[in-house]
């Protein structure tokens, strides 16, 4: 008998919820989505969701577990849980340095959420905030990421930790890819651009609004073969 799907309290425009959806898609985990009226309804601050997560944030993952329901409210923890269940390769090889570097990026991703995510909420949904300060810390984080990804390229590695994707990439990708939503340009980061392309080209990758399909992965459907002409 298969156990019921984990329930994700989800908002389509939330990059943090998207992390969970993306990880599940890449890992082949079926999620039961429970849409939350974040905007305009502010449902995440209502009694039902506050009972699950007093911090009033989403995503929330409720997963059936041997000891009762497991409730996770931190996106990094959700990624680790989904990967552990269904795609352990996303947790790296388990070598001490590798595991530690993954943890380093999971923690780093919180800075992306605060800075680039804060600028995005301000620009898109009118959330208050010091826009110049948010953008400046976002740019500082992007520069660190760019330098690290450049060194990865020198090693012939396309992802943050090694030559295959880990939860580190999934944790960092959404807020970086959506930085322009908050008015932070990605033009100046060639290594980030190549890394984003590698993530978007992954088997099973799914988009969220603001991240377009990599149409180049499919041939042009109207490029008629020469033989079809006559």
């Amino acid at each position: 008998m298969t156990s019921p799907s984990p329930v994700l309290y989800d908002y389509i425009l939330s990059p943090s919820c998207y992390k969970a959806r993306l990880m599940a898609a890449l890992a082949g985990v079926r999620l039961a989505l429970r849409p939350v009226d974040f905007h305009p309804g502010v449902e995440h601050r209502g009694p039902e969701l506050l009972a699950l997560n007093p911090a009033g944030s989403i995503p929330i993952l409720v997963a059936p577990d041997a000891d009762g329901d497991l409730i996770l409210t931190e996106s990094a923890a959700i990624l680790v849980y989904l990967a552990s269940k269904a795609a352990p390769a996303f947790l790296g090889s388990g070598k001490p340095a590798e595991s530690a570097r993954i943890q380093q990026w999971l923690a780093f991703s919180a800075r992306l959420t605060a800075s680039l995510g804060g600028a995005r909420l301000h620009e898109m949904l009118h959330r208050p905030g010091d826009l110049a300060g948010l953008r400046a810390s976002g740019i500082a984080a992007l520069r660190e990421l760019e330098a690290a990804l450049f060194e990865q390229r020198l090693k012939g590695e396309a992802f943050l930790v090694g030559n295959r994707p880990t939860v580190a990439d999934i944790a960092c990708f959404p807020y970086v890819a959506l930085a322009p939503d908050g008015g932070v340009s990605l033009d100046a980061y060639p290594s980030i651009r190549l890394w984003m392309r590698a993530v978007r080209a992954l088997e099973g990758f799914i988009e969220m609004p603001g991240i377009h399909r990599l149409h180049e992965l499919k041939p042009d459907p109207h490029e008629a073969p020469a033989t079809a002409e006559a």
Partner: peptide, 18 residues
């Protein structure tokens, strides 16, 4: 559900925003 209707339309519009 109402929230699904809202999300669908927000998704469509946010794809246009960029």
């Amino acid at each position: 559900p109402m929230t699904d209707l809202i999300h669908f339309q927000q998704m469509i519009f946010l794809q246009d925003r960029s």
